[in-house]
Amino acid sequence: MTDNLSQLMTEFADDLAPSPEGMLEQARRGARRVRRRRRITAVVVAVLLAAVVVVPLRFLGGGASRTPYVTPSPSPSAFSWSRGPLELNVELAPREYLIIGRAQSYRYGRGYLTVVDPGAFDPTPLLGGEPVTLGNRTGYYLSDPPTDSGPRLVALRDPSGAWLLVSGEDLRDGLLNAAAQVRLGPPRPLAMPFRLGYRPPGIDVGTARVDLGGAPGWAQTNLGFGGSATAPIPSMFDWGREGSQLIVNVSSLPAPLEEMLPDEPNTTVAGRPAWWYERPVGRVNVGPKGALLAVRFPTCLFTVTVLDRARFPRAELERIVAGADVRDCRDRSTWVAPL
């Protein structure tokens, strides 16, 4: 793995490094400012030292204590909590968000926010943390928490009963400040570039994910059925581990999945070019008993994967595709509730 790691790091670095343009000039300007500031500081320090000599010592010590950390209070969450399985409550527009069972997660800046429905979170893993209060929310701050989503975590109980879990790379105060910015509100439906007209009976939706990628007009959306498991401290990293039995994935073209398929379309579904696999293919993990059906629409690749093709045979998957109302993956104004 470590050979891979070296190679991938080199690729990451080459792909992602910012341009050095203008940095030398900026460094020169910055250095001039630093030198000027140092000259001023030297003068000020000299004056202060002179002053300190005449300040009675009693004014310098005793009674000083650390000022408690204070953050802006969050706005009151004056609403009754409610949320359907495919609804969001956070007033935030990140580029990636998902729902797994009773937890909704968002990726922001350098961190992750997860909101767990009232009654669905057991705070026991947090109890060793530092108690914190932010406005009308109380909870804990933990360094090195037992979660994959970052080295630090702030967990707060909202007056609505929901728990807010904010984690990431920020240090304590940065994380607390980020947590203080979180606003919860009435539920709004999650939209996707498709609506399913048919789904196999006896299996409920457990996950939903929207990844807007970053490039204008590009998106990947997923609906997972039959699995909603989360870690004790839920996070975005539960995605892929929730145990979905059937996943509908609809992505803008060019879809990453299509680029990974080694062959040209090997079948047609509803008159559209399609791929059908009952084996692992390329880097696509179909699974020994699973299957994959991918169908190309004008702006989207519509994919259905299942873990057990005996339970969900090809005819069922084709029926899902045929019954779907597929919108424009590039135009979010056309998106609808997927169920």
């Binding site: 990451f12 792909d15 992602l16 990140p94 580029r95 990636e96 990726r107 922001y108 800046g109 350098r110 961190g111 920020d170 240090l171 105060d173 940065g174 400040n177 980020a178 910015q181 990844d211 990628g213 970053g214 490039a215 590009w218 990947q220 997923n222 997972g224 990293f237 995605w239 892929g240 979905s244 996943i247 994935n249 992505s251 803008s252 060019p254 990453p256 999945l257 990974m260 880097r283 696509v284 993990n285 179909v286 994959l292 994919t303 994967t305």
Partner: peptide, 30 residues
Amino acid sequence: LRRRRLPTVALTYEALDGPRAPAAPDPVVA
């Protein structure tokens, strides 16, 4: 120590690389 920017927009590998990057964890992709 600083976090001058408030959390607003994700800046992930996928965001930087756009559609050329395989999407973040997806059960159908190794």
